[in-house]
């Protein structure tokens, strides 16, 4: 395979503009991180609430939470993104819909959709974490006179979230990978830039290699970061850590 590898093209200018390809790449990295991290915050907040709701005694609340999870889990992320981009503005009141269509950055749509999609997955993990706790923990908290909310916030969730740190870690890495879908609505993240650079520069393989390595680097950083949090929050003598 006679292919001339040349990474020097990165510092050359793009065809129609003053930027270099490196600028595109850095811009892509910025938007990938921006979308993934913002969506992660939304996903955590909603996922923990919905996951907790699924373990409540109230049939009504638990059923609603289950519907949320099933709805978001059984439609492809890309389709959800396109629905959010093309359909939701039509359902909003006219003024708001017009603003969303014309002025709202597509990255915001991507952040919301990716956040909601991931919230369903975090909800399932949170539920599993809570259900994995001894039933007596809830009883003990209630017997002391804590309200249901306090019972979750102070007693159940701190334990459940520690238990699901390994799956949360892989979910965090997933959200970085999944943010790549945002290219479809024109967010200028890494995958969008990869496609654009490939067409513009005729250095497709180099482009993809660099972009792939950037994704791997992000995933590894995310993994180390979560491992650091996991170590910091470890309880002496509990869950396999040494005394």
């Amino acid at each position: 395979m006679g292919y001339d590898w040349d990474f020097g093209f990165l510092v050359s200018r793009v065809k129609n503009g003053d930027e270099t390809y490196l600028d595109w790449l850095l811009q892509g990295l910025f938007w990938t991180l921006c979308v993934a991290l913002s969506a992660w915050l939304i996903a955590l907040a909603i996922g923990i609430v919905v996951g907790s709701a699924r373990t409540l005694r109230s049939r009504w609340v638990a059923g609603l939470a289950e519907a949320w999870v099933e709805l978001l889990r059984n439609v492809p992320l890309l389709v959800q993104l396109l629905l959010g981009y093309f359909v939701v503005p039509e359902l909003l009141p006219r003024e708001l819909g017009l603003w969303v269509k014309q002025d709202m950055p597509p990255a915001l749509t991507a952040i919301i959709c990716l956040g909601l999609f991931t919230s369903a997955r975090i909800a399932e993990q949170t539920r599993a974490g809570i259900e994995g706790l001894p039933a007596g923990q809830r009883q003990a908290a209630l017997a002391l006179g804590l309200t249901t909310t306090a019972c979750y916030v102070i007693v159940l969730l701190p334990q459940a979230l520690r238990r699901i740190m390994p799956t949360l870690t892989s979910e965090f890495m997933n959200i970085i990978k999944n943010s790549s879908v945002a290219f479809a609505i024109g967010v200028l993240e890494l995958t969008f830039q990869a496609r654009q650079m490939q067409e513009d520069s005729e250095h497709g393989l180099e482009t993809y290699l660099v972009v792939t390595l950037l994704y791997v680097a992000c995933a590894l950083t995310a993994n180390r970061g979560m491992a650091w949090i996991e170590r910091r929050t470890r309880i002496p003598g509990y869950l396999g850590s040494s005394r």
Partner: peptide, 20 residues
């Protein structure tokens, strides 16, 4: 009910201290 529970001390078979 929470207030009432607070006035009744309960001790469980498996202790149920909060491990965290």
């Amino acid at each position: 009910l929470p207030r009432l529970r607070a006035r009744l001390g309960m001790v469980f078979q498996r202790f149920e201290l909060f491990p965290h």
